[in-house]
Amino acid sequence: MFRNDNEQPAGETLARQHRLLDRFLAGVEKRAYRMAVLATGNQDEAFDIVQDAMLKLVEKYGNKAEADLAPLFFCILQSRIHDWYRRSSVRNRLRSWLHSDDEDDDSDGLDQLPDPSARTPEELLAARGGMIALDAALAKLPLRQQQVFLLRAWEGLDVKQTAAVMQCAEGSVKTHYSRALATLRDKLGEHV
């Protein structure tokens, strides 16, 4: 009776926000998962990363406008991927240090990460040649080049948005993107 006609009950607003979040996450979850798989080379790790990103988005930024959700979500996703990469590097360094005391280790830990291009024979048969080549080429890119490329070329973020998501300078985004594109051009030339 005393409520302004323009105001909506809290429950209705909350339900609308839930629908908005659900719609947004439904739109990005597959691409986010693929990005995480390409970064980690491990499906379970990718699920964990995407789940963390979803929970954090809803918990911290659940009341944000629709236009703000994508940059926030991908920023969280990149942060989680970066955390995973750092933990993996430390773990692999420790492992290599413990198991090969007599060997000189000048690697940066990247060679210890699982090979995302390693597939079972069934997967190789099921997947198309072009997709395998693309996955392999993307997986071999340095992590930041790979993620910048995916955000720019696939997700459609511009340089400024990508820089904000990756928390780096716009110049770095251009450099990473250019190098990634050059590498893919060399490796995928015959597949496209």
């Binding site: 839930h18 979040l21 659900d22 996450l25 439904a26 979850e29 597959k30 998962y33 699920f47 995407v50 789940q51 979803m54 929970l55 988005l57 809803v58 918990e59 911290k60 659940g62 009341n63």
Partner: peptide, 13 residues
Amino acid sequence: LHSMRVAAVSRPH
């Protein structure tokens, strides 16, 4: 992915 999304959205923010 669907289960993860439903769990995240239904969680009170």
